[in-house]
Design a protein around this nucleic acid. Structure first.
Lengths: 217, 217
DNA sequence: CTGATAATGAACCGACGGGTTAATTAGGTC
DNA sequence: GACCTAATTAACCCGTCGGTTCATTATCAG
């Protein structure tokens, strides 16, 4: 029937075990952060044992790092699916903002991992190399939109794509990361369906408005 | 000479010890989060001992909670010093955004505590009562600005002060909270003096632009 | 079949760190 | 000065949890 590439067959499948551990570990680290997460808890939700976690990943920090790396790769892959090529620049930008907003919402575990990593000062992210290109790809999308907008006379010519990305990320990220404290402080009206629709729309509108050629100033 | 209110004099001053512990604990919890912080480390940087930390605060979680509460109170007190009463609404709003941006920047420990608390789902913040009024005060400031702006015909009449506050907070908070990962992903050009000035200005400008009466749409 | 290696299981270890016990001192009160 | 309580110290306790040891089984190459 089917032959695995490396001729590994039924039962005793290391790759699957590895992936299983990674999957569970991602959820645990996202929920509890690094220190509060117990390897035993991860193992318990896996089909394998604590011994195997160490066997495959060495130690806790390495596992965490592998999780972070996989999460980044997964999310960036999702982003790459967005196609804005044949849209006029204003619609493309609006679509990008809305997509980013939704995409963050749909990946709370990733957001929480990034929060955790920021608490740690980004120390585990430093040795990840292949992120640079993926990240620059995100900026390049914005650069193209800005350039097209400028060329058509629709956008201002002093837009910084990086600063624009920063603002889009800020709203999309904060919406997920600070939901708990924001809701406790101000109620959860912004987090029901209507509230989220409002925030999403205002985010898109304010970003768009800020790049359009001098409506006022 | 001077008489303390409760006739407590030189040496053996519980209030001061408490405050000392709280000060050090705030820095430690902000830097390391809840689990990674060691009570012994806190004690070591205090003028007192580990035993005293438990004596005054009961246990680690209670100490953390006291720290969080004190941090909130401190930051909110700082915010209250901003006076926008005699400014026209557009200038008042711009000033508020700039102030919030700066204020977050100046209180990174507070930001980090809020990050930690969000990782914990806000569970320690739930029993803090007196925050409600302080938070509503922040919204009320925005409500007054929006109302004045609307009355003068300058602002749109469909502004949600809460959503506006959310956007201002998002940018101000994200700027501090995600600095580490953002800089690793995209370089630190947005975090030097010029970059920060740009972000601050764009934040203010985009907020302002979004409330002004139909410049375009 | 045989030997080698990769994968797994069970039981164990040790130190780290939150929290405590018990005894001591300082300060206030009358 | 006698007494009481709040504040402080030193030493200890013990559960938890990251990581390991060692023995066992599965898989594969020849």
């Amino acid at each position: 029937m089917e032959d695995q590439p490396k001729s590994r067959r039924w039962k005793q499948n290391p790759e699957a075990v590895r992936a299983d551990i990674l999957r569970v570990a991602q959820a645990e680290f996202a929920r509890n952060g690094l220190s509060r997460t117990r390897i035993e808890d991860i193992a318990a939700r896996t089909k394998t044992s604590k011994r195997m976690v160490f066997y495959y990943f060495g130690d806790k920090e390495s596992l965490y790092q592998a999780v972070l790396e996989a999460a980044y790769a997964g999310v960036r892959a999702g982003e790459a699916e967005l196609d804005l090529e044949d849209l006029p620049p204003d619609q493309a930008l609006r679509r990008l903002v809305e997509f980013t907003f939704d995409h963050h919402r749909d990946n709370p575990d990733f957001i929480r991992l990034v929060m955790v990593e920021n608490i740690h000062g980004g120390s585990h992210m430093r040795q990840m190399e292949q992120l640079a290109e993926q990240n620059l790809a995100a900026i390049r999308v914005l650069e193209r939109i800005c350039e097209a907008g400028r060329a058509s006379g629709l956008f201002r010519d002093d837009i910084s794509p990086l600063a624009l990305h920063w603002r889009i990320s800020a709203m999309s990220f904060f919406n997920v990361s600070n939901r708990a404290t924001f809701a406790l402080n101000f109620g959860d009206s912004l987090f029901d369906e209507a509230g989220q629709a409002l925030l999403r729309e205002e985010a898109a509108r304010s970003i768009l408005l800020s790049v359009l050629r001098a409506p006022l100033d």
